[in-house]
Design a protein around this nucleic acid. Structure first.
Lengths: 356, 356
DNA sequence: AGGCCTCATGTAAGCGGTTACATCTTGAGG
DNA sequence: CCTCAAGATGTAACCGCTTACATGAGGCCT
């Protein structure tokens, strides 16, 4: 079924059919009806490839992520998907790149197939990334810049530094001074900014350097678990753990439960991201909320703009604000029971969470 | 940069360039080198739309899911993504369909854009689904059939019934007789099969009908939480909760923790799916493992076959086996402490889990 | 009435590949 | 030396759609 068949059946030319179907030009009412009727009768579906070839656009955008699993990434996809569909765009996704080379390969394969790209590559060195990104394709970077070199690309970032500061101030406000930090990957821009927030507040509070404790982590639950186990062996033991993301906080929670350390009575735990599962772990996790779906949504918005005006200079910035979500994994260290490992029936010092 | 430019630079015709680039026909060694050199020098990237138009294939497959977030769905996408990339296919995903109509719209929009479709629509009535699926497009159904009417489509299913049976036998083996079940959506084929497994074993064990307890649920954490709260008010109180999926089990765990009910000492909890987070909740969740990524992988394999031989009759089946993963959320009801709500330091009756 | 402008529609040239078929070499066999 | 097969390469039609431009029909103005 091609446009010719429809034209023949409606007794008009292909141009007219095209005009009717695209609705951009004026067509006589009656002709319009005939064409529509013919198209419907023939179950006509325009050939996308032909259309793309002709108009030089595909109505498709590509999403390149470090990995498509995980709560964070799937929320991003979801946000973009919803926004894109509303504007008639399709999304081509690719994730699970074990290394940079593979990612660049994918980037290349998407070239020509998409009108624009949303790229999230927080672990790739900036210079390498920017030189390998197709130069003339609308593109927005997700969390892949820390305000420094950014190749003049459009980008969306999370207020990582502000969020980390907020959490640290909150913990300090509760009375914690021994706060351990579980770091993210060293090359990861988000991770670096969060770490900066941790260090800044620790310093500003005048907390003794010996009470600062930074553990390696890679944003996975498993690394959070391992880090927490190490923390338990440190003397003097910290009273709080701030993990650079929720997944690691969840891993830490698991390690603490395994070791019989009560949370929050004996150890407060805080995360970052507010992934969907955060409110369902035990205890519900106090964390920094990032509206992840909104991140995706706004990324699409920015990209849409870039596609519409390819001439406009790139370099737009959009920063997603964060908010502290107080649940039940943190409390004052004072109520900690010095020797016994058993907390009271219910630990005190709870604040009401925002959830039902 | 078109193929013509490359041809001109290499001093050959476009046909030769095409042949070199596709590697299907013989070309003289020297010519080949020239073409390759020209292509590289010009940074030539073939135009995908033109290619698709010409060969009538897009090297792209579509994935239509009820929702792209959630651990389960993102694992499916991941599995397909990895398998597809290996074979040079791209994936177009769409999820977040609030209703059936929207899903059909998406199905329509993908038509012509993809060579095949992986559709997961467990909640859509089969007759409606089958009549609205494009008839001549290779397609595999994910979890959308319960062995009954399936429209002669290729399909992959999970061994839901077997898995549920296994879990029920395990719980019964531990000594539980009061086992509550949190159901999934009524129209959902997976959910129905799991329920059937629950009922079958309950009946076979000769457990009094009064001790059977089925709660409504919709596969979300929140519904699991609500169901668990209801269960706590039932007298006599069940000693175990089997949720039709992990998300609901996680919700139940949260409700129990909130109510101060110890798991597994006072209440055993079991789930289904083994989503990544299952091992990190407190206590680690005993569940039925479904290799979700493998599900996606095999779906792609089946689809690949269907694309390669469009003439072959559809109706292929592939069933994913399940395995019981014993963690720490279930134990014998005997060690339950009748009045006190506080368990011992560590609940006994633990089995070693499979995880590190 | 003739000219001109407007509006609806038709014609056909691309868009950038693939590929059937034509053409041209080249070497072997007679 | 001629013929012919086989192999390498060129030519051009075609995939289905969009759109600049051409065409033709009215309608309005002078």
């Amino acid at each position: 079924m091609t446009i010719h068949d429809v034209a023949a059946r409606a007794g008009v030319s292909v141009a007219t059919v095209s005009r009717v179907l695209n609705g951009k030009e004026v067509v006589r009412e009656e002709t319009l009806k005939q064409v529509l009727a013919a198209a419907k009768a023939l179950h006509y579906v325009p050939n996308v490839a032909a259309r793309s070839l002709s108009i030089q656009r595909s109505q498709t955008i590509g999403i390149v992520l470090p990995d498509v699993h995980g709560e964070f990434f799937s929320e991003v996809i979801r946000g973009i998907d919803v926004a894109a569909r509303r504007e008639g765009y399709h999304i081509l996704v690719s994730g699970s790149h074990s290394d940079v080379g593979e990612m660049l390969e994918v980037l290349d394969a998407m070239r020509g197939r998409v009108d624009g790209l949303v790229v999230m590559a927080p672990d790739v060195a900036h210079d390498l990334l920017h030189e390998s990104l197709p130069p003339n394709l609308p593109l927005v970077l997700l969390n892949s810049t820390d305000g420094g070199v950014d190749g003049g690309r459009d980008a969306i970032t999370i207020d990582n530094h502000g969020g980390a500061q907020a959490m640290m101030r909150y913990l300090a406000g509760l009375g914690h001074t021994g706060i351990a930090f579980i770091k993210g990957p060293a090359q990861n821009a988000d991770a670096r900014e969060r770490l900066r927030g941790y260090r800044g507040v620790m310093r500003k509070l005048g907390i003794r350097a010996t009470r600062r404790l930074e553990l390696a982590g890679d944003f996975t639950e498993e690394s959070g678990r391992a880090a927490a186990q190490k923390i338990l062996n440190v003397a003097p033991r910290p009273t709080a753990i701030f993990a650079a993301n929720d997944s690691m906080a969840v891993g830490a929670l698991a390690a603490l439960a395994e070791a019989g350390v009560a949370v929050p009575a004996e150890m407060s735990v805080a995360g970052f991201d507010d992934i969907p599962i955060a409110r369902y772990v035990t205890p519900p996790l106090t964390t920094i909320r990032v509206d992840i779906a909104d991140l995706g949504r706004r990324a699409f918005g920015l990209l849409r703009g870039a596609i519409a005006q390819p001439a406009a200079p790139a370099g737009r910035r959009d920063c997603i604000a964060t908010t502290l979500v107080e649940r039940k994994s943190c409390c004052s260290p004072e109520i900690r029971m010095p020797t016994s490992r058993r907390p009271d029936r219910k630990p005190r010092g709870r604040k009401k969470g925002e959830e039902s």
